[in-house]
Design a protein around this nucleic acid. Structure first.
Lengths: 124, 124
DNA sequence: TCCACTATTCAAATAATATCAAAATATATG
DNA sequence: CATATATTTTGATATTATTTGAATAGTGGA
């Protein structure tokens, strides 16, 4: 991923409606949500929602798949992963930065065991 | 961090010049780089660079500290960390996504433990 | 103080983006 | 075919962002 590509993705996420849409789809998982439900849930008019969905699709953050009359949108986790890798690449000259990012990924091992004893294996 | 806040930060990064500036500062580490050198290195005119530096500062991604006639800018790693946490929070319904993000943090953890064993004292 | 240096702010023109109503497209069904 | 549903595209308008030269402000040295 180059700078221009990353900037386009970040710019796409840099809008409250689009970020809400993306977060909704990220939390929704691979199953996805159809366009109408997205707009309804976030109170965005159909035309506007479509505009934002097209934008997010164009930069590769989400994808839509038609199922009969509906189009199910879902998050492209790989794009988000690449984006975060781009942002954190060669960072901070070896200092230990990004504790929360580490925490998110080590939660299963360290925090997960301490905070929620019932979930020793699964994430949550 | 709420959605609006995250969107403002993402929007700030969603511009090629600003993203280049931020990445330069992220790689530069805590020492930072002064405004003139940033503009020179990225071939951005002083006024334009100042505009973007102010923007990045306003959203908390970088900070500037005056040292005699120069102003040294450096990255606020905590803001980036919070942003990534926001983006990846409650993601993908338990599926294992974001392999590169895990890899980045695995590397950091391993290198940190091997190179500087005293890094166990947390900031907060 | 005057001057050189560093950086920001201002004013303006230009460029890009967001929104919504209305029309168009695609799909299913009676 | 006609109709209803789901979504997109179009168009017009309003808003916001970007850029740059010139002016301004802060700093340190002679």
């Amino acid at each position: 991923m180059d700078t221009l590509n990353a900037a386009e993705i970040l710019s796409a996420l840099g809008h409250e409606s689009r970020l809400s849409i993306f977060r909704l789809l990220v939390e929704a998982g691979p199953a996805g949500i159809n366009a109408g439900a997205i707009g309804e849930q976030l109170e965005i008019q159909p035309a506007t929602a479509s505009f934002h969905l097209a934008h997010l699709t164009r930069v590769g953050l989400i994808k839509g798949e038609r199922e009969s009359r509906f189009i199910h949108y879902s998050a492209n986790y790989e794009t988000m992963d690449d984006l975060i890798a781009f942002l954190t690449n060669n960072c901070c000259q070896g200092e230990s930065c990004l504790p929360k990012t580490v925490e998110v990924n080590t939660m299963t091992k360290r925090r997960g065991a301490a905070a929620s004893p019932s979930s020793t294996k699964g994430k949550k």
